[in-house]
Design a protein around this nucleic acid. Structure first.
Length: 645
DNA sequence: AAGCAATAG
DNA sequence: GGTTCTATTGCTT
């Protein structure tokens, strides 16, 4: 965050080690790009002002302030990195819709993908329109309360919200209509641009001859299954079609805190010890503010290798002994550090034979398995007290109401309008892939971050807001499955029934007698808005007026999936073990993605369902449990009853 | 539970 | 695609 307005007018670069991880627009105009080496940048722009961005403290803190601000509107906020958030605004949209008169002026706030927004018949997209208004409000709140600008994308699922968020860059927002889904995703020239498809996956796809999204859309699912297994294959295919039923899962407090440093060369045990002590000290300070206690410590290293195979990190971890854990609470952090250093050195020795020569290029120390402290001591408006408080009253909800997931978008801006006529597909794609830029706004700031974000600039943060809007049409296979359960049967109750009874309830014949739950009413599709903020803080903002945001959490409701699945095809031709307790008739009527998931499980490829509820873990359930729960409620607890015994 | 790969910003 | 500094999820043992 650049607090000094004067720096906004000067070419500025954020430096980490010998690299410019990001820079403002002024610098860009002078030829500086992200990830450029400092020496190269200086050649291009001798007057480039450099700011060290290795310490992420302020950036991280601002990042959480953004998430907290969004959570003051709804608990359904999922972080993606430090500068993006997905917000499921389905419920908010429904509430507003219920109280908006038929005749109100419905017009999109911001851009509408591939349309001139004023020309769109907004009444056909009431939910998305409301979602766009909410996104604008969230962006405005970020600006007025935190001094940040950013982008937002409003769509019916996370994948789409993210893709559309980058269409209009600095500080703007864009909504995606269901009829334009294929326009935004189908024309991506490279599959790599699809969120979730990284290098490795792209390589494997390329080996199959698939490069563009369209290639993937047209590729037979059965062939994809051979390469990736059922569950992954279906996920890939769905993504290529713009289908994403993953829920916006509240992130909550972080599950681990780590600190690392990279260097050209470290080859003495003494240096290693000093570095470990340094990393532990700063980590302890963070842990102290967090208020929780780690139960596990992990040390990671990266060794130099001539074969430029920078990759691979190696790590060793171990539990933190009880007694040390105790001094955590009361003790001064430096005392704890003194006790942890030898522990960490033991881990180091497990990986490196210090009697021989070694050459490290990075050391990372991580605290994980974070446990809440006993009530008395926590307190203070720390970040985590905010997140941990509501750990959960999340009740799983019943199927029939489905609300679901949303997506996100990014960009903030004050709205605008637009004019532009068709957005060129190509250019928009490009923007989308670049993604996270913080764009700085034109007027207020100037920082822009793009992909790698990291950084240093503390000010900026971003968020994605997702909201839901209309759904309609996609028939969701999920809905069909859900509909197999009598509407008045609570799924949680259902799963407690004896298996035979369950089977009976699921028998097609029986199912046909059941009333179809109301849902398919066309309007249940969720929308998602995603928001990204970019940041620079406007100048006179008072950074400390956040007070405790914490307490206004609403009790979360579970979400349900929103999108449609795709028509499955020849799943039955595959050979796989068919568990005896499964009725083939029932199986054949399941949506293809569910069939795939089950088959994967039977084949033990990719278990789709994780450990079912039987975990009585002592540890406070946090994000993970919440995710599992969200997923369960979304995936339909029916699946587990098909597991082979 | 430990370690690592993949993905992300 | 890699650079930096994180963080999460899901595999495999």
């Amino acid at each position: 965050m650049i607090r000094n307005p004067a720096l906004r007018e000067v070419p500025l670069g954020i430096q980490q080690k010998y690299i410019i991880v990001t820079c403002n627009y002024v610098a860009r105009e002078l030829g500086v790009t992200k990830l450029m080496s400092v020496s190269h940048a200086k050649e291009k722009c001798p007057r480039l002002v450099l700011v060290n961005g290795e310490d992420l403290t302020h950036y991280r803190e601002m990042s959480y302030k953004v998430t907290e601000l969004l959570m003051s509107y709804t608990p359904l906020v999922e972080r993606l990195g430090f500068d993006e958030n997905f917000v499921d605004v389905t419920k908010m949209v429904e509430m507003r819709l219920a109280e908006t008169p038929e005749s109100s002026n419905l017009t999109f706030n911001g851009h509408v993908y591939s349309h001139v927004s004023a020309d769109v018949e907004a009444s056909d997209h009431a939910r998305l329109v409301i979602g766009s208004h909410i996104a604008a409000e969230l962006r405005e709140a970020m600006h007025s309360k935190l001094g940040l600008t950013g982008c937002a994308g409003i769509a019916t699922n996370k994948l789409l919200a993210k893709l559309v968020s980058g269409c209009f860059k600095p500080n703007q927002q864009t909504s995606l209509l269901p009829e334009n889904v294929n326009d935004i995703i189908g024309c991506l020239s490279n599959i790599r641009k699809v969120p979730g498809v990284g290098h490795q996956t792209a390589k494997r796809l390329q080996a199959l001859g698939l490069v563009s999204v369209e290639d993937l859309q047209l590729f037979p699912l059965s062939d994809l299954v051979k390469e990736f297994g059922g569950a992954s294959a279906q996920r890939l295919k769905n993504m290529a079609l713009g289908i994403d039923d993953s829920p916006v899962t509240p992130t909550g407090a972080p599950q681990s805190l780590s600190d690392e440093d990279s260097f050209k060369k470290m080859s003495s045990t003494k240096d290693v010890l000093e570095k470990i002590r340094e990393l532990l000290s700063s980590l302890m300070e963070r842990m102290h503010k967090d208020g929780r206690q780690p139960q596990t410590i992990r040390l990671t290293i990266r060794r130099y290798s001539a074969t430029n195979k920078w990759f691979s990190r190696e790590s060793r971890q171990c539990p933190i002994p009880r007694d040390i854990g105790h001094s955590f609470t009361s003790g001064r952090t430096e005392d704890v550090v003194d006790q942890l250093v030898p522990l960490a050195m033991k881990l180091f020795q497990k990986m490196v034979d210090s009697s021989a020569a070694f050459h490290l290029t990075l050391i990372n120390v991580c605290f994980s398995n974070l446990q809440k402290r006993t009530a008395a001591t926590s307190g203070k408006g720390s970040i985590t007290s905010f997140f941990t408080q509501h750990t959960s009253p999340r009740k799983t909800q019943s199927f029939s109401t489905q609300d679901d997931s949303s997506q996100r978008g990014d960009h903030f801006t004050d709205h605008q309008f637009h004019a532009h006529s068709g957005i060129s597909q190509h250019s928009s794609q490009k923007a989308a892939t670049i993604k996270s830029p913080w764009s700085s706004g034109a007027e207020l700031h100037g920082f822009n971050r793009k992909q790698s974000s990291v950084v240093a600039v503390k000010d900026r943060s971003l968020l994605d807001v997702s909201c839901s809007t209309e759904t309609s049409d996609l028939d969701k296979n999920d809905s069909k499955v859900k509909n197999r359960l009598p509407p008045n049967v609570d799924p949680e109750v259902f799963r407690l029934l004896p298996e035979e009874i369950q089977q009976e309830l699921l028998t097609p014949i029986y199912a046909d007698l059941l009333p179809i739950t109301s849902l398919s009413s066309a309007d249940n599709v969720p929308n998602i808005v995603k928001n990204k903020s970019s940041g620079s803080r406007t100048n006179s903002q008072n950074p400390n007026d956040m007070k405790e945001a914490g307490n206004n959490l609403y009790s979360p409701e579970s979400q349900s999936p929103a999108d449609a699945g795709e028509k499955g095809r020849g799943v039955s031709s595959l050979s796989f073990p068919f568990p005896g307790n499964v009725d083939p008739q029932v199986f054949s009527e399941l949506p293809s993605d569910v069939q795939m998931a089950l088959m994967s499980e039977w084949k033990q490829e990719k278990p789709v369902l994780k450990n079912a509820s039987t975990r009585k873990s002592v540890r406070s359930s946090t994000t993970k449990d919440r995710k599992a729960q969200a997923k369960r409620s979304q995936e339909n607890s029916l699946l587990k009853y098909f597991k082979p015994s």
